[in-house]
Design a binder for these strands. Structure first.
Length: 801
RNA sequence: GGGGAUGUGGUGGAACUGGUAGACACGCUUGGCUUAGAACCAAGUGCCGCAAGGCGUGGGGGUUCGACUCCCUCCAUCCCUACCA
C-alpha cells in the first residue's frame, strides 16, 4: 500500500545520494558539452524568489540537457564584493568579510536544499585573493595593451562624511546618512577603453542568439551615430568651440551654443565671474546620474561670449546649460530650437531666436522630421540628407568641420573609492603611477581590526604607505570588473597556478546564460567587452562569451523589483519547509513564463503541491509491467498513446526552443488528467497496462527536470534502480500522432456558428456542402447570397454574406 | 528626458505562423464522503440575458472575410539610464 507523499524525507535522501555519488561534478569527456550558467548572486543574506526563479530555470535546462546526453557544466559562485557589505558592517559591527562569508554559507545551504545540480567543486568567491589576483593580472595586461588610462571624472561627494557616494546613496540630492547636500567633485580615476571595441561590440551582436530586445538595448546604448564635427570660432579669440551634430542640415537654424557646466571654458569663466561661479555651484547639486540630470529643470546662463557661425559669419551667443554632458561628444551642443525638442524648451525659456530651416505643413515647433531646407542660403530646396552632405563638404573645405562617426558609449570608469572591493594593483612615486605585474600580486585587501568600521582605503595609511616614499593606489575596482570574467574562471576555478587552462578551451563559450533583464546593458556589455579584450591579449578563444541568452523578468513585490536594499524580499525557506523543494520549483516555473515580470503571490502554490500529490498517488504503489507493446490497441488506448506522444513532442519544444516551462507543465497536467480510470485498475488488460506504463514513464521523465526529487524516487521505485532516470529520454513516435479526423470550425461573417468532425480525406467541395447543411449555420445564412467562402485547410471555413 | 518591456475572467496565465479567446491552475458555487473539519472526488464557473442571442483581450481609431496577434494614437505599470547588483 502506498504511503503519503512526504517531500521532506525523500528530498533529503535523494540529495544525499547525489552528494555521495558526486553526481554533478563535471569532467571533460567526449560527449557534446553544454555550459549552462545562471548569473551568480550577490550574497545579500538569504535567497529570495527572484533567485529561486532564475536558478530553477537554469537547473531545469541543465537537467533536461543531461537527459539528452549532453556533458553539462553548471557551476555556482558568489559576486562577493560590493557596497551592501560595507553598509551592513557599519550597521551591525561585523566585518564585511565575515558578513559576506556568513551570507554565502546561508545561501549555499538554501541552494542545496532546492536540489540544484551545481558542480560545487568549481565554486568561486570574487572577494578571495585566489580570484582577484587574476583580475589584477588582467588589469596589468590590459594596461600593457594600451587599454587603461587615467582621467578626471565626476563623483557624488558627501562633504560631511567626506566620502564618495554611489548614486543609490544620494536621495533628493542629499547624502543618505549625513543628510548633507551633496556636491559633484572631479577626481582622478582609472578608465578602460571599452570605446575602442564599440564597433565590434555593435557588429557582433548580429549573430548572437539573444532576445531581440536585449540586442536593441545594447545597440541603442552603444549609440553609433553618423554626423559631423563643426567648429565655431570664438569671437575675439583664436580658440574654437567644437560641436558634434547628427543634423548638419539644420546648421542655419543654430541660434546658440550650450556648453557643459564642467566644460573647461565654463570652469575658467567662473574664476572671474561671480554669477557664473554661483550657477556652476548650483549645477553641482544635481547628482551625477543621467536620469536626474535629464529630469532636472533646464537651466542656463549666458556667458556673454559669442562665436562666429561657420557659414553665415553671424555672431551666436554661448550659454552654459545644465543638461549638457561633458562625457558625451565634445561637451558642447549646437542649439537648433526649431528642430530639436530640448533646444526648443531651452530657447523658449530664455527667449533665444527660433529659426525654422526645414519646411513643413504646420509650424508646430519643434519640427523633428527631415525635409526640404529653407532659410539656408545656397542650400535652400535641398532635401535634408543631401543637404547634410553638401554642408559638411563646404565645412570641410573651410576647415571648420568634418564628417564624424560618434558613439554614445563612454569609456568605463573602474575606480571606486571604497573598502570592500578588489584593490587596484598600482603604486605611485609621487604622482607617477605604475601598474604592478605578475610578481607583485596579489595586492591583498587589508584586514580590519575587531569592530573597526570599513573606511575607504584612502584613509588607511598603514596600507597605503610604502618604503622610499612610494604609495599604494587607494581605489578599488568597480564590482562589474569582478563579474565580467567569472564565467571563464569557473572552468578553471580549481587551478591555483593558471588563470585559465585546457578545461577553459573545452567549456567556453557559455552555451546558455540565464539572468535578470536588469542586466541587459551594463553587465552583459562589460562581459562581452572583457571577452574580446581577453581574446586580444591571448587568454581566451572566440569572440563572444555567451552564445544564447535567456533574460528572466523581475519578480516584483508591491510593484517593485525584489531586492534586499528595497526590503521587499520573499524568502523561499518557509515554502520549502511546508511543501518541499519540488513544489517550490514547480510553482515558480508554472506561475508565469520566464521572460515576463511577475508580481509575487503565493495564491496557487497549493495547486502545484496538489499536482505532485496526484503524481505520487498514481505511481507510488505501481510497478512497471515490462510488456512488449505488440497489441492491437483499441481506439481509446490509441488516444492515450497519442496524448502521451503529443505531450512529449510539445514538452521537448517547450524546454528546448521556447523556454516555456509553464505550458510544458500544463501539458503534463493534461496528460495526467486524460488517463481514463479503467486504465488504472489492477485488473486492466495488458494492452491498457502498457498504455498506462508508457504514460507514467513519460510523465516522470518529462517532469524530472522541474521536480527531480519526486521523479527520481518514483522512477527507481517503479522502474528499478538499475537504470538512472537522468540518462534517459523517450522518443516521440510520429506515427501515433497522425489523425484521420479533424474538427472543422464553421464561421458566418467571421463568427463561429458551428463545428463539424470531418475526415481528413474529404474534398473541399464536400466540406462546404456539409458545413452549409449544419442547422445553426443554415439559420444564419438563410436566403442571403454567399459573397465569398474562405477555406483554411483542416481548420476552418468562413462564409461571407 | 532617453532606451526596453508589459497590459487578456475574481487571480496567475494559454492561444507558438492573422483563423474556435480564456488551455492548465488558483479561487468561488453546488453536491458527495465525514460525527465534524482537513484532505479527496464529481459538476459548474468571462460578462449581460429566462432564452435566442449580444458583448468581450488597457482606451480610441484603422487594415482584413477574419485581429489578443498587424498599423496609428492615447493611457497605465515595471526595468535600465554608466557608482545598487
Amino acid at each position: 500500500m502506498s504511503s503519503n507523499y512526504n517531500p521532506q524525507s525523500i528530498e533529503k535522501d535523494i540529495q544525499d545520494k547525489w552528494d555521495k555519488q558526486n553526481k554533478y561534478v563535471t569532467r571533460v569527456d567526449e560527449r557534446k558539452k553544454y555550459y549552462c550558467l545562471s548569473m551568480f548572486p550577490y550574497p545579500s543574506g538569504k535567497l529570495h524568489m527572484g533567485h529561486v526563479r532564475n536558478y530553477t530555470i537554469g537547473d531545469v535546462i541543465s537537467r533536461y540537457k543531461r537527459m539528452r546526453n549532453f556533458n553539462v557544466f553548471q557551476p555556482m559562485g558568489w559576486d562577493a564584493f560590493g557596497l551592501p557589505a560595507e553598509n551592513a558592517a557599519i550597521a551591525n559591527k561585523v566585518s564585511p568579510k565575515e558578513w559576506t562569508n556568513q551570507n554565502i554559507e546561508n545561501m549555499k545551504v538554501q541552494l542545496q536544499s532546492l536540489g540544484f545540480s551545481y558542480d560545487w567543486s568549481k565554486e568561486l568567491k570574487t572577494c578571495e585573493p585566489n580570484y582577484y589576483k587574476w583580475e589584477q593580472l588582467i588589469f596589468k595586461k590590459l594596461f600593457d595593451a594600451g587599454l587603461v588610462y587615467r582621467k578626471k571624472s565626476l563623483v557624488n561627494w558627501d562633504p560631511v562624511d567626506e566620502t564618495v557616494l554611489a548614486n543609490e546613496q544620494v536621495i533628493d540630492g542629499k547624502g543618505w546618512r549625513s543628510g548633507a547636500q551633496i556636491e559633484i567633485k572631479e577626481i582622478d580615476q582609472w578608465f578602460i577603453k571599452i570605446t575602442k571595441y564599440a564597433e565590434e561590440l555593435l557588429d557582433s551582436l548580429e549573430n548572437l542568439d539573444w532576445p531581440e530586445n536585449v540586442k536593441r538595448m545594447q545597440r541603442n546604448w552603444i549609440g553609433k551615430s553618423n554626423g559631423a564635427e563643426i567648429k565655431y570660432k570664438i569671437d575675439n579669440s583664436k580658440e574654437f568651440l567644437t560641436t558634434f551634430s547628427t543634423r548638419p542640415d539644420t546648421i542655419f537654424g543654430v541660434s546658440f551654443l550650450a556648453i557643459s557646466p564642467n566644460h573647461p571654458l565654463a570652469v575658467n569663466l567662473a574664476k572671474s565671474n561671480k554669477e557664473i561661479y554661483e550657477f556652476l555651484e548650483k549645477c553641482k547639486e544635481i547628482k551625477a546620474a543621467e536620469a536626474d540630470i535629464a529630469k532636472a529643470d533646464k537651466l542656463g546662463i549666458d556667458t556673454n561670449i559669442k562665436v562666429i557661425h561657420p557659414l553665415t559669419g553671424k555672431k551666436i551667443p554661448v550659454w552654459i546649460g545644465n543638461f549638457v554632458l561633458l562625457e558625451y561628444g565634445t561637451g558642447v551642443v549646437m542649439g537648433v530650437p526649431a528642430h530639436d525638442a530640448r533646444d526648443h524648451e531651452f530657447a523658449t525659456k530664455y527667449n533665444l531666436d527660433i529659426k525654422q530651416v526645414i519646411e513643413t505643413d504646420n509650424n508646430d515647433f519643434p519640427i523633428l522630421q527631415k525635409g526640404k531646407l529653407i532659410n539656408s542660403e545656397n542650400f535652400n530646396g535641398m532635401q535634408s540628407d543631401s543637404a547634410s552632405n553638401e554642408i559638411v563638404n563646404e565645412l570641410t573645405k573651410l576647415k571648420l568641420g568634418e564628417e564624424l562617426i560618434q558613439f554614445r558609449l563612454r569609456d568605463w570608469g573602474v575606480s571606486r573609492q571604497r573598502y570592500w572591493g578588489c584593490p587596484i594593483p598600482v603604486i605611485y612615486d609621487g604622482d607617477v603611477p605604475s601598474v604592478l605585474g605578475e610578481n607583485d600580486i596579489p595586492i591583498e585587501l587589508p584586514e580590519l581590526e575587531e569592530n573597526e568600521p570599513p573606511t575607504p582605503l584612502s584613509q588607511n595609511e598603514k596600507f597605503l604607505k610604502l618604503n622610499k616614499g612610494f604609495r599604494r593606489e587607494s581605489d578599488t575596482f568597480d564590482t562589474f570588473m569582478d563579474s565580467s570574467w567569472y564565467y571563464a574562471r569557473f572552468t578553471s576555478a580549481d587551478n591555483e597556478d593558471e588563470i585559465f587552462d585546457e578545461k577553459t578551451k573545452y567549456w567556453l563559450p557559455v552555451d546558455l546564460y540565464i539572468g535578470g533583464i536588469e542586466h541587459a546593458i551594463l553587465h552583459l556589455l562589460y562581459s562581452r567587452f572583457f571577452h574580446k579584450a581577453l581574446r586580444d591579449i591571448g587568454l581566451v578563444e572566440g569572440d563572444e562569451p555567451f552564445k544564447r541568452l535567456l533574460t528572466q523578468g523581475m519578480v516584483l513585490k508591491d510593484g517593485a523589483k525584489m531586492s534586499k536594499s528595497k526590503g521587499n524580499t520573499v524568502d523561499p525557506q518557509p515554502y520549502i519547509e511546508k511543501y518541499g523543494a519540488d513544489t517550490v520549483r514547480l510553482y515558480m516555473m508554472f506561475t508565469s513564463p520566464p521572460e515576463q515580470s511577475l508580481e509575487w503571490s503565493e495564491s496557487s502554490v497549493e495547486g502545484s503541491a496538489r499536482f505532485l500529490k496526484k503524481v505520487w498517488n498514481l505511481i507510488s504503489a505501481r510497478k512497471y509491467s515490462k510488456l512488449d507493446g505488440r497489441f492491437d490497441f483499441s481506439k481509446e488506448e490509441l488516444a492515450l498513446r497519442r496524448k502521451s506522444h503529443a505531450t512529449l513532442k510539445k514538452v521537448e519544444n517547450d524546454y528546448e526552443v521556447r523556454f516555456s516551462f509553464n505550458t510544458a507543465i500544463a501539458a503534463i497536467m493534461e496528460l495526467l488528467n486524460s488517463i481514463p480510470e479503467d486504465f488504472k485498475d489492477s485488473m486492466a488488460p495488458d494492452s491498457k497496462k502498457y498504455c498506462l506504463d508508457e504514460a507514467i514513464l513519460f510523465i516522470l521523465q518529462m517532469l524530472s527536470p522541474i521536480a527531480p526529487h519526486i521523479c527520481e524516487y518514483l522512477w527507481s521505485n517503479f522502474y528499478g534502480e538499475d537504470f538512472d532516470i537522468e540518462s534517459s529520454w523517450p522518443e516521440v513516435n510520429e506515427n501515433l500522432l497522425e489523425i484521420e479526423e479533424f474538427e472543422l470550425i464553421i464561421q458566418v461573417n467571421g463568427k463561429v456558428r458551428g463545428k463539424l468532425k470531418v475526415n481528413k480525406s474529404t474534398e473541399q467541395e464536400e466540406i462546404e456542402e456539409m458545413a452549409l447543411n449544419v442547422e445553426n449555420v443554415n439559420n444564419f445564412i438563410g436566403s442571403s447570397k454567399l459573397k465569398k467562402t474562405i477555406y483554411v485547410q483542416e481548420k476552418l471555413i468562413n462564409f461571407v454574406i
